[in-house]
Simulated scan of single mutants.
Amino acid sequence: MSLTVRPAAESDLPRSIAIERRAYGPNKTSPIFFPGEGMKLEDRIAIMTTRIKEEPATQCIKVVDTELEAKGEEAMIAFSMWFIWSGDLRPSFPKRQWGAGTNLEACEAFFGEMDRRWWARFEGKPHVYLKLLHTDPDHQKRGAGGQCLKWGTAEADRLGLVSYLEASEEGRPLYEKYGFKEVDRIVVDLTKWGGTEPAIAYLMLRQPVLN
Rank of each mutant, 00 (worst) to 15 (best):
R121V: 09
F93G: 00
T135F: 10
G124I: 00
H127T: 07
E170G: 03
A167N: 08
S163M: 07
L133S: 14
T153G: 04
R158L: 13
K150T: 13
C148K: 00
L174M: 14
F93H: 11
G146N: 10
V183A: 06
L165K: 02
R172Y: 05
K125Q: 00
A154V: 12
G145C: 10
L149I: 12
F180C: 01
Q147P: 07
A156I: 11
H134Y: 15
L159A: 04
T191W: 05
T191G: 04
V128F: 06
L165D: 03
R117M: 05
D115C: 14
L165M: 09
G124Y: 01
R142A: 11
E169C: 06
E166S: 11
N103K: 02
L165H: 05
V128Y: 02
D189Q: 07
T102R: 06
C107M: 14
E182C: 08
S92P: 03
Y129C: 01
F180N: 00
R90F: 00
A100M: 06
D184F: 03
K141H: 15
W119S: 04
Y129K: 00
E170I: 06
K131T: 09
L130P: 04
E176M: 09
P173G: 11
C107Q: 05
C148H: 01
L89V: 11
R142V: 04
T191N: 09
W118V: 00
E113L: 15
V162R: 03
D184A: 08
T191S: 15
W119H: 13
K131Y: 11
K177S: 11
E170L: 08
K181H: 09
A167T: 05
R96T: 14
I186Y: 02
T153S: 13
R121I: 09
W119E: 06
S168N: 12
M114D: 05
E113K: 12
E123G: 02
S92Y: 01
F93N: 01
R116L: 14
L161W: 02
E108M: 08
D157F: 02
V188H: 09
G145S: 11
N103L: 15
F111E: 07
Y129P: 00
E170P: 04
G99T: 15
V183F: 02
T102Q: 06
E182Y: 05
K192G: 05
R90N: 02
E176C: 10
L190Y: 04
D115P: 04
K192V: 14
A100T: 13
D136T: 10
V188L: 10
L132V: 14
N103M: 13
W98E: 13
D138F: 08
E176I: 08
F110I: 15
L190K: 02
G112L: 02
G112N: 03
C107H: 03
K181T: 15
Y129A: 02
G146C: 10
K150M: 13
A100W: 06
G179V: 08
E166W: 05
L159Y: 04
L165G: 03
G152S: 10
F180V: 01
R158G: 12
R96I: 13
R121M: 12
G101T: 12
W119F: 11
H134N: 14
T153F: 02
V187I: 12
C107V: 12
G112H: 01
R158H: 12
F180T: 00
L190E: 06
G152C: 11
P173A: 12
